[in-house]
Design a protein around this nucleic acid. Sequence first.
DNA 1: CACTTATGTTAGCACAAACTAACATGCTTG
DNA 2: CAAGCATGTTAGTTTGTGCTAACATAAGTG
Lengths: 130, 130
Amino acid sequence: MKIQESAENYLEAILMLGRSGAPVRSVDIAEELGFSRPSVSVAMKNLRAAGHVEIDAEGYVTLTERGCEIAQTMYERHVLISDWLIFLGVERGAAVRDACRLEHYMSEESFLAIKRHIENWKSEIYQQRS
Amino acid sequence: MKIQESAENYLEAILMLGRSGAPVRSVDIAEELGFSRPSVSVAMKNLRAAGHVEIDAEGYVTLTERGCEIAQTMYERHVLISDWLIFLGVERGAAVRDACRLEHYMSEESFLAIKRHIENWKSEIYQQRS
DNA sequence: CACTTATGTTAGCACAAACTAACATGCTTG
DNA sequence: CAAGCATGTTAGTTTGTGCTAACATAAGTG
């Protein structure tokens, strides 16, 4: 069962919303992603069936271990890519919008290569300055 | 009428196939992209309706000016991104696969920023060596 | 000429992922 | 308590984009 882009986005949104500590409801996810409540409702049903989230009696959504792993991968990529684009001079809004899409279409290999590149690049700059 | 990812891919494939000078048929596009002939047939009908390609009596497909513009944008991005990933150490196959997807999801702004970054980076290397 | 092969097309299907309309349900509040 | 609001769900629709089955047509070949 291959995970889809949309599923990855939902999981990432749930992770981000949960970081404040407040419980996450369907309507919060809909608000965050700009989707309708029915869309989120159906998506949650599918994510639950796939074992990526759990939904308690109050309707609060939590990530399972598997779901959390995916969400964190996406989040890490999102941050790396958007920070990096911003660093390259891309306007923040555009950088975040692009990162939101690019994060889903990059192999692990490419992601790691970029990460490595940024780290090397930063340490070079650091050496030049010291 | 927003251009879709699939349309961009078809146009890019037509451009690439046409570079050898040989006329481009539907079946060549199908072969190139790994799609069925009916899928390509329908896609060509849509691309023609949208004014992105022309199809002559022999079934040869050519890009219109508008179509060619899109194709070249995609191709330029494809080459930049895949070359760059390869340069960063990503295996060629993975780099090309990733580039094929990433090229559609990047704003012009981000693309230019990356291009600029690569050029700067290369010139730094050059200066170090000279 | 009859057959095969290559190519293109049409019709109909499948699936993902969004939407709206309509309804259920429970909380708040005049 | 009754009305309204927030939230969730179900059903059915839309759109994009692929597929297979079946057929049309032209070209080459025994």
